[in-house]
Design a protein around this nucleic acid. Structure first.
Lengths: 395, 395
DNA sequence: AACTTTCTTTATTTAGTGAATTAACTTATT
DNA sequence: AATAAGTTAATTCACTAAATAAAGAAAGTT
């Protein structure tokens, strides 16, 4: 009723191209014959389209398979060096950069300190960082498929606009355009949680899931939603999970409201709670974590209460959205059982008996370059995504 | 990444057929030339496909338009008598039936009392009701496009299964198949909130909205979600809004949990709350409503508190999902400002300053046959829906 | 009579398909 | 071991159908 991408030969091609590419990613290495079987396409079509994807460099004839009593199958697989993407996480003072290959493996890492914080100078520095990554990795420049940038704040992905940016006080900056002008390749900008989610979707715990949710715990409390294999963005930035109201007269939040979940479950929220109940000096959440691990009861309770609150809200999320999986990530993953044990317990107590059990809640191990890898996956995603969900046209 | 409907000539045709049919529904009566312009299809294609839709009886050449300095345009419009659908709402003791035309207008109404409550006898009675509706309306039988059934409880739409049914204690009943065998036309079964939502989507406040949410207040507290123009169902029945936990030690709910929103905001919830605070006899929510309207302070507070609770949860919903619109319907709409004024107030106080304002919350006027009309719209929706979102295949 | 706008017809292009063909094996038989 | 028969994989080819551009017909206005 809303979709209006019109049917054309190019669309057919693009759809089938994408189906085949995705199946190879999913079950490859795999023969053309097998692909024809699982996709329902004819073997003739498979010959044609696979030739095209090979010409595009995205897949290659990797090896011969075992014979099943006849000619040996030629197994097709994603070509790791078929293309590369640069991913950059924008933080308050630093650009964290990675260069990944077509299967999401990190080839090169490099960070740069921000000196000036105007949009132009940050875009320029991203250009420098991109060039540095390419130089160090010795990847041919024309194999760079694009640059992805992940940033905190409200982002209009389709227009590549940073609507608000907490660190820089920018407003409605057409950032992807700025970067694209500098680097000369297609550039995507998205909210950092969404970048992380795309990484999970392509190469992580979100693979082949129609619906899943990602929640990140760290400086803030973020959330991303995938519905029918595509990121759901709502009219204006869906997924502001951290700004759910849990206490109508709670702590003041930076968003302007009071009692947001984030004022209790986030680095700063935990820190404040910790200082309220600990007589020891608590300079950071890591201090608080240390206290908890050295058997400090009040510190443990701070994490436990945060976990309980988080669990209650996640349970409600499950009740309303019934996702296949909820993936928890972010720097806060290091709080471990102190927070996640009570969280799981509370989820269990608050979901519906039959309906809620269908959702799996997993805490993913965390690595510091995850944000940046996610940003790079924005680029890769555009190649793997179904054309129906893509912004770019093809006719 | 998930979608796998393969590209074929039939798919192109089906997509463009659907685009044109929808555009005519949206902006018709409209000329072929204008349709070509807004859809991006060639005029030749428009000639071909419009001829086909006319042959199918779904549109017709309604009238001539004004000349703009050349040949007068022939305006195409949906054909109200292009097809008819029967919609049935399953309640505890009664079948509420309507027959609607292709543009959703009610042609005939009829109800039947349930005598036996086995799946087979209910399916049989639906057959009788369908035949009665057709007889009375004098609609030619071959113009009946299908039968839609709306039921409370958990429904597996794709399989047409009633997983659980609160009124009848059925379990995993393949109900659409049972009815289809009896009536001989395509039959769809869905949760009643979803049927209502499809009606809003096709002919009501949800037209041309990519994302919106429907909330129904009545015997229960239901919710439906439309994302990208399609109903979002989750893994297991998304939208159990009534079973969000609001008080961890609250009232016992029929679902097995405690403190569900529904135990406070629903006919029964209001009734219990009313009895707790009113000395007068309160036999039904309508008694309570009467008391409120005759200036009974405690009764008014019962509604106000329910409205506040509801508003707080809707605000959180907006924060997380950022839908374009939230449509509130159901029998509870008659509580009017007693409940909706505090609801709106609380929503306002609890949404995020910038993000939340993008969502509009509307209370729709209620009619008793809405449920049944919605069920009929399940059938019509299958004709208007984009083939990409449809279950049925076409090759 | 000249111009416009709407709609249809015609020839062309192109993507998928089934059937036939070629390629490259394994297995049974002599 | 040599050969034939059978299998599976991949490609080639003729065919079909849907969109399209371009040309033409229809029906107006100026």
């Amino acid at each position: 009723m809303v979709t209006s991408k019109r049917g054309s030969k190019d669309l057919i091609r693009a759809i089938n191209y994408s189906i085949i590419l995705n199946k190879i990613k999913e079950i490859g290495p795999v023969s053309r014959a097998e692909l024809a079987k699982v996709t329902g396409l004819s073997s003739a079509t498979l010959t044609g389209i696979s030739a095209q994807i090979i010409a595009d460099g995205l897949i290659f004839e990797k090896e011969m398979g075992e014979s099943k009593g006849g000619r040996k199958p030629i197994l097709l697989a994603l070509n790791p060096s078929g293309g590369y993407a640069v991913g950059i996480k924008l933080t308050e003072n630093t650009l964290i950069g990675v260069l990944v290959n077509f299967v999401g493996e990190i080839i090169e890492r490099y960070n740069m300190k921000l000196v000036s914080k105007t949009p132009e100078s940050v875009a320029d520095l991203i250009g420098n960082l991109t060039e540095e990554l390419i130089k160090r990795s010795q990847v041919p420049k024309d194999k760079l498929l694009g640059v992805g940038v992940g940033a905190a704040g409200l982002v209009d992905f389709d227009r590549g606009m940073l609507i608000t940016s907490p660190f820089f006080r920018w407003r409605n900056v057409p950032f992807s355009q700025l970067v694209q002008n500098r680097v000369g390749v297609k550039t995507y900008v998205d909210n950092d949680v969404n970048t992380l989610m795309v990484a999970e979707q392509l190469f992580g715990a979100g693979q082949n899931l129609e619906h899943f949710i990602t929640i990140t715990i760290g400086r803030g409390l973020g959330m991303g939603i995938v519905v029918n294999g595509q990121i759901y963005r709502g009219v204006k930035s869906a997924g502001e999970f951290g700004h759910i109201t849990v206490h109508s007269n709670g702590r003041q939040c930076a968003c302007g409201k009071r009692g947001c979940l984030e004022t209790l479950v986030s680095d700063e929220g935990l820190l404040i709670s910790g200082r309220e109940v600990c007589s020891e000096p608590v300079d950071s959440v890591d201090d608080l974590l240390q206290l908890a691990e050295s058997d400090h009861n009040n510190a443990q309770n701070v994490f436990a209460q945060a976990g309980t609150l988080l669990g209650a809200q996640i349970a409600n999320l499950i009740t309303v959205l019934s996702p296949m999986r909820i993936i928890i990530g972010g720097e806060g993953v290091r709080f471990g059982d102190w927070i996640f044990k009570p969280m799981h317990q509370t989820i269990k107590e608050n979901i519906m008996p039959y309906q809620g059990e269908a959702t799996e809640v997993v805490v993913e191990p965390w690595g510091d370059d995850r944000w940046a890898v996610g940003a790079a996956c924005l680029v890769l995603g555009e190649f793997v995504k179904s054309p129906l969900y893509r912004n770019s046209s093809y006719d």
